[in-house]
Design a binder for these strands. Structure first.
Lengths: 236, 236
DNA sequence: CAGTGGTCTAGACCACGGC
DNA sequence: CCGTGGTCTAGACCACTGG
């Protein structure tokens, strides 16, 4: 069941979408929203803070609450407050599973997952396509003590959907590191690029809501097919 | 003057730093913090939410408040809630100013700044070095009606510092787009790379707190010298 | 079931924008 | 000066964790 402030946030988002409001359009004042939704001011503010953190609105003391929509289409949202919807999206994506196996954690994996070298992990390698073209190679390592079972079918769809709905795990936060490099021999075949062409290499560590790291993954993106997007809000 | 919740957030951050607390270390409970700081529970919660959004702590219903430090050193923080400190940082950075001039906005610039083609803008081109090595080429366009004056001296330091402290502008939020490409002829000379080598191309649009766009910039990073970092929090 | 975080309220008071 | 968002309080009640 949704909380009041979540419901209100959603309702306001819908209102923006349904009326096709654009960047800079004004929303009703706090007071108006309080009477409209019949809740306390703080609850409305909490809803608006949520929307602000998602980049949907901005608030201006003394003048009002305004829409901040925008966002160029076709970019992968590397954000954030948006939750962990990265996996899905408006894109036509397909996945080829290259490996699903239990392994002993290497020193590198163990360090990132905060476990011991040799501990059991699930190793998953996937090739992901966007509109039929190779988008990225993803190698994931899951702490087996957290995710005791996986198979090809699960891994072919959204893994995070399985974690959330199948295993009832609640995700907390993530760290992302990335840099630019060059495609190597193995990658060139999978991504259908020449050796030495540009590549975006992304490392992710995902944590449960309990703070425990459970997934360390490395992803190499095809530079021709990938565009990324980030929305930021100042907290001065 | 700092607000109560900001002061408390800062104080907690200092406490974490001074006691060298690590990922997973437990902080005092809400109730304890309330008595310690002699403020209401909501104020403490607001401070903790701020820290949570900055990625400094995480809260767990039923168990407590924990430290979330980490962060590999040497990565450029492409975040976010962290405010707009991108310009400075712990790095030894220098800047070479290649151009500071008033120009008429191109169609592309006008579209991103939401002004008319031909309107006056400041065009600034800078080459930035990290530990003496070329890090990136940055081409910035500032709406002249917002930033009426700039010169080489201002532009050699942090432009955002000037905007904030000199012009008393308050920054609101930003959109960032990026993709991977290849170094072209002109870039190769400045960044001391071969044509065709990998490049990270970043586009930024910065908005004032009023929602008005005032800066559109394009930055090309030297792939050898740049590593980036993002911290995300789930909002489920 | 005790302890801890999370939601929600009602209301006082403050700070800023714009007329 | 009015309207609008922002801070802060005090307290009720809920929901989850862990012994």
């Amino acid at each position: 069941m949704l909380l009041k402030y979540q419901e209100i946030a959603e309702s306001i988002e819908n209102h923006i979408r349904d009326n096709a409001l654009k960047q800079g359009d004004k929303l009703p004042s706090l007071e108006q929203l309080v009477t409209e939704y019949k809740v306390s001011k703080s609850t409305i503010r909490k809803a608006l803070e949520l929307l602000e953190s998602k980049g949907a609105v901005y608030q201006l003391r003394g003048s009002g609450i305004f829409v901040r929509s925008l966002k160029r289409p076709g970019y992968i949202d590397l954000g954030f407050s948006r939750g962990f919807k990265k996996d899905l999206g408006e894109f036509e994506m397909t996945t080829e599973v290259l490996a699903v196996e239990v392994r002993a954690a290497s020193a590198e994996v163990a360090a990132n997952l905060n476990i011991e070298t040799g501990d059991a992990i699930y190793y998953i390698k996937r090739l992901r396509f966007i509109y039929g073209k190779p988008l990225c190679i993803e190698e994931s390592h899951y702490d087996k003590s957290v995710v005791p079972y996986m198979n090809k079918e699960i891994v072919k769809d959204s893994i995070f959907y399985y974690l959330r709905n199948g295993l009832k795990l609640s995700l907390g936060f993530s760290d992302t590191y990335f840099n630019i490099g060059k495609i190597n021999e193995a990658e060139s075949k999978l991504l259908k690029l020449e050796v030495g062409e540009p590549a975006l290499r992304l490392e992710n560590i995902f944590f449960l809501a309990t703070g425990q790291a459970f997934n360390y993954s490395k992803t190499t993106y095809n530079y021709e097919e990938s565009q990324f997007f980030i929305q930021a809000t100042s907290t001065d």
